[in-house]
Design a protein around this nucleic acid. Structure first.
Lengths: 346, 346
DNA sequence: ATGAAAGCGCTAACAA
DNA sequence: TTGTTAGCGCTTTCAT
């Protein structure tokens, strides 16, 4: 921490390396950025000095010159308390790993929750980041619109809901496919009365997932009750109680839920009614959150391939940054089903 | 995304502003960094042009000159799957918010899980960050040692376990106090046989928390069984079953756990034995994770004041960066207890 | 209170 | 294949 300590080891610069290696600064620069231009022995000599000195190019200087920071901006939102939606964590980690492979880093910034644009402008004007990854497309297209307008590169995790055909690079996971997978899984376990427990109709993501349940039911020549509620455990618990009141041949014995939170709410209702999860009633959640993993007796859930999402995003980012036309600027990935005891009939 | 778009709106520079305002570049710089040096009317005029143009200083140039990036490095680790430990999420968010208030941003980097030093060196040599926040102090002091050796500023979230007196700025939350709080809470609910369910003795954090349970029990003139197991739901479930076998006056009716995962495991055991959480047996978890919030019937848990931790860290960071002696370089914060139905006797 | 000059460390363009 | 020159946008002297 002492200042003299810090001064005692001044960081080597290009000039230091050049002098030590008996070449010009430019040659050192080339050794780093265009090694194929150097003769083999020169390269080796320069490389040796670089290693010996532990030289790393100064990022600020490089950034000033190349106008590229190798930083990707990501607005980091708080995980909602009270729900089991802890996707962000896994996604961010995947993104950090994926960007590291191309020499980029993630720059986190905060934003006023009520102003989707807050934070973006400042970083843009300061040329602090090369590009953005936008995660909250469900909230509207304000950020994407802004970035497109000023010509700032970005990729979104989430399709452009309002403009399905928008010429904008995005990666998303099919919620419809996830719910379809879940429904088919319950059908295969001989459930017939399968209910949908989802979010309010204003949620695009919720409606997308719901459509998958509907499609699978229709394909089986069935129909089931669909309920739209708020995303919390209690609302789901109460809704489940109501749905389980029914009797007769098409009584509900299966639940496909828009979130793990809702799925856990159903499990609570089952516990209160003395019904056995999996055996009497099958329940599937969504997002494979920590909650689904630790809750009793284990909640079957739709899992998004976030690691793959991150990789594809970085690939698109690369294309966008190099101004090359991207091969496939819109990519829909498929989720998988993680089966646990809430859908196993033993 | 088109290049012409980007060129059509070249970012204004100091020179642009200076010309528009009819002053020298230096005056504009002063308006930004030392406004008190300017005459009032000059300042107003310059400020007006800055606002009009939407000028923001180029970070790279400023960084090159001042050798300060206003970036704080944070190695982002994966949240452990299968446990309910999703602290990182909340902490990172708090940190982003706290650093934003001082004009700093968080730079995330990945690291080889097996090499605690990986990632640090590179960022240091590239002068990419001004300081680091270290979160995995329980794993040893390799990072802190490295950073101290090269004179790089850092603050740790977590005390220096191996060297309690180390002259190193840190912020931590007292796990002992948390477990004490939990135990006292159960004692107040007339529980007497209170067990400790914790991690292996090699975990400093685990032993710290355990000591709080022990202290509270001793203060009440009691003693209880302490069990050390791996941090997963099943291990806790089985351990709880065993502990609940006992009968007689000092049979176990309360559990203080080192994590929510373990607490949830106990709840599973209760469900399997037909015991009512809260009423028959009280259970307290640790960390107030999403799992504690959504699990049935709600798990009482010790909550760390992560928002406050972040604020204190930023305060220490500030001191460390300005090379001023920090008022109190080691700060221990107190956790709180979030009471839910797992400890309520109705 | 304001301006002029210098230079942070790097790379693009050009020259040798 | 290597070296020279210039300048990215800013702030730190120092002069006015």
């Amino acid at each position: 921490m002492s200042p003299d300590r810090r001064l005692s080891e001044p960081h080597p610069t290009l000039a230091t390396v050049a002098e030590r290696a008996g070449v010009s600064r430019q040659t050192v620069s080339n050794a780093l950025n265009n090694p194929e231009l150097l003769r083999e022995d020169t390269l080796a000599r320069v490389q040796a000095v670089i290693d010996e000195l532990g030289y790393t190019p100064n990022r600020a200087a490089r950034q000033l010159r190349t106008r590229s920071s190798h930083l990707i901006g990501l607005r980091f939102e708080q995980a909602q308390e009270g729900t089991s939606n802890a996707l962000m964590d896994r996604f961010v980690h995947s993104l950090v790993e994926a960007t590291a492979r191309t020499g980029h880093h993630i720059l986190l910034f905060a934003g006023d929750p009520d102003d989707p644009l807050d934070g973006y402008r400042e970083l843009l004007r300061a040329t602090a980041v090369d590009a953005f990854v936008i995660t909250d497309t469900y909230a509207g297209t304000a950020q994407a619109d802004l970035l497109r307008r000023v010509g700032a590169p970005f990729v979104t995790f989430g399709r452009p809901w309002d403009e399905p055909g928008a010429a904008q690079p995005w990666v998303d996971v099919s919620g419809a496919r996830g719910a379809e997978l879940a429904t088919e899984h319950l059908l295969a376990a001989a459930h017939r009365g399968i209910a949908w427990l989802g979010w309010e109709a204003s949620s695009r993501i919720g409606e997308d997932r719901r459509s998958g349940w509907q499609a699978a039911m229709r394909a089986a020549g069935l129909d089931g009750p669909g309920v739209r509620i708020a995303d919390n455990v209690d609302a789901a618990r109460m809704a489940a109680h109501e749905l389980l009141e029914g009797t007769g041949p098409d009584r509900v014995t299966g639940f496909v839920c828009a979130s793990d939170t809702l799925g856990i709410g159903v499990l609570h209702a089952l516990a209160e009614r003395g019904l056995r999860p999996g055996i009497d009633v099958g329940v599937v959640g969504f997002d494979d959150s920590l909650g689904a993993q630790v809750t009793w007796p284990g909640l079957t859930s739709v899992r998004q391939p976030l690691e793959q999402v991150a990789i594809e995003i970085v690939e698109l980012l690369h294309g966008v940054l190099s101004l090359k036309p991207v091969r496939e600027p819109a990519r829909m990935l498929e989720p998988t089903l993680v089966v646990r005891r809430s859908t196993q009939r033993e």
